[in-house]
Amino acid sequence: MISLQTVFIAFFGIATIGFGILVFRTSSMVRSALALLFSQTALGAMFLAMQAEFLGVLQIMMMATEMSIMAIFMVMFMMDPGGLGAMEMSHQKRLSILAGVVGALATAGIALFTPWGVVVNVAPPAAEQIRALGTELLGRSMLIFETAGVTILTAMIAATAVALPALQRKRNA
């Protein structure tokens, strides 16, 4: 008997993969960014289907903003963001397809043949999950959580420093 949860996981899984493939199939950069947005949103919906409510909502919110910014960058940096000129923007296609297929088959093989142990069919309620995650973040995993914060700060400074024009960097030095 196939449960409703299985149906939803399969549906959103197929949507995630489908939109993921579409990212590299269209010649329009804006469509690529939107396809990635839909792929990541379907992934968030898949998390919701797996009863990870907080992570699902977080994924959808984060990726909506991230991919919108990406679409803006696409329009800024591309010579042909609309894909009207049908520019070729790929190379070593056969090798890439081979690497992708081998990578996917290897990971699928590992998933299939690994003895995963006892599968738990009942997830904790959403409120209990958020409370327990908060306790985890401010307890046992606090150091990792703080490290993530410092890493974000470092990346922000690094990204700004790299993006500054060379002349301004020289003047500051």
């Binding site: 196939i2 449960s3 949860q5 299985t6 996981i9 399969a10 899984g13 995630t16 993969i17 993921g20 493939i21 990212v23 590299f24 950069m29 690529s32 898949m46 797996m50 990406m70 960058f73 696409m74 940096f77 591309m78 923007m89 790929s90 190379h91 070593q92 296609k93 090798l95 890439s96 397809i97 690497a99 992708g100 297929v101 990578g103 996917a104 088959l105 990971t107 699928a108 998933a111 299939l112 995963w116 599968v119 069919n121």
Partner: peptide, 30 residues
């Protein structure tokens, strides 16, 4: 569990598509 397998296969497919994209595209943003 079929649910676990479905999720892991989705992860495997996304991994493969991502590898294809990272290797085949010439544009940094892609």
């Amino acid at each position: 569990s079929p649910d676990l397998l479905l999720a892991l296969f989705t992860g495997a497919a996304l991994f493969g598509v991502g590898i294809y994209g990272a290797l085949s595209q010439t544009n940094l943003v892609m």
